[in-house]
Design a protein around this nucleic acid. Structure first.
Lengths: 195, 195
DNA sequence: CGCGGGTTTGATGATGCTCAAGCCCGGTGG
DNA sequence: CCACCGGGCTTGAGCATCATCAAACCCGCG
């Protein structure tokens, strides 16, 4: 059950065999069925979750009822609401399973314990956050500078696994456009491509 | 010269007096005059910079020549192109001083040395990245879900120091709208506010 | 005085949104 | 086996928001 996590950690730092065993003891396995929630708006985010299997998303809902997807998380990814997790404030995000999922959860105090017990995990999480920040900055910059069509093109050629598993209207929501607009863009692309 | 940095570090972790002295030895002081660049598009980003004084911005320039501001950095903030700094790839960002500035620079290999020499700095940078990620995610989510006017309102009541020091057209560029649109929004706000 | 940087204003147009309807397809139950 | 339903995708018409382009204005400064 913890294979992916170990692998993921060992890609960034090196651990002794004992440490690797110790690591596992900090996590709680949890299964989620499609459409179940790990976190709902207004709750305090208790866990950081590592995805062993399945696909989740985090999103907000605005006053008009529209959803805006902040993140997808598939096998080998982490998902949480960092702010709520850290501060203990209620969250504004929903985290939902888009497919049946198997997660490894860690609570905040256990997370702190883990960093004490295996100091090199500090480095692991730093690298994780760093990569995440780079990706988020890039996405923000794209959203600031590119029109809808180019956002879509950029998504499909940087990350082809997402479009495979995610329905169109959620891709639209991830890009910050409507499903209708995305549909039209795709139509136009496929027709201009054929000629 | 290193007061702000020490202060900033001590807010997140505790250091012995020796460590604090040691810390300083890793940084190169550097002054920049208004409109000078720390980094230009196409260069590899050699430094992470801590701002002791002044105000900088990082931005990209798109094909049409429009600028898109990713970040402002004032006293007590860090600025860099993380991706280029880490990977050694050429950067797509410009980093420019908007006011005369005093910086503390650290090179990549020295940065690695620092983490070796003072392991608790790993934690400092982790917390830094975490806060930065939270802020960037929030900004992205706002950009995905809010219209121009609300973006502006949100900016002025969360961060009043920016509008003080930054010309309007750069605020517009930070929000991802045009100067003209921002000007009209402000006009409309001030008139509706008076009544 | 004239220049440059920043802001404002107006006219026009494009991009993307809203609302409403229809379609496709796989699953379910009579 | 067929009818029906729901989820997701598409299409069209009209509209709102925001961008573009061009010009004028304001003001501090050499």
């Amino acid at each position: 059950m913890h294979e992916l996590l170990s692998l993921n950690v060992r890609q960034k730092i090196s651990l002794s065999t004992q440490e690797e065993e110790l690591l596992k003891t900090f996590f709680i396995p949890k299964k989620l069925r499609k459409k179940q929630f790990l976190l709902q708006e207004g709750e305090v985010c208790q866990y950081a979750a590592f995805v062993e299997k399945g696909l989740l998303r985090s999103y907000t809902v605005d006053k008009k009822g529209n959803e805006h997807i902040l993140q997808f998380a598939m096998e080998g990814w982490w998902i949480s609401d960092l702010f709520s997790f850290y501060s203990g404030e209620p969250s504004v995000y929903m985290i939902e399973a888009m497919e049946d999922a198997e997660l490894l959860l860690i609570k905040k105090d256990r997370y702190e314990d883990l960093l004490q017990a295996i100091p090199s995990m500090e480095r692991y999480f730093r690298l994780l956050l760093q990569n995440n920040l780079i990706a988020t900055q890039r996405r923000l910059n794209d959203k600031l500078s590119l029109p809808a069509e180019e956002l879509y093109l950029k998504l499909i050629d940087t990350c082809d696994s997402i479009p495979q598993r995610v329905p169109q209207h959620m891709i639209a929501s991830f890009l910050g456009i409507t499903r209708e607009t995305l549909s039209r863009i795709r139509k136009q692309l496929s027709s201009s491509h054929k000629k």
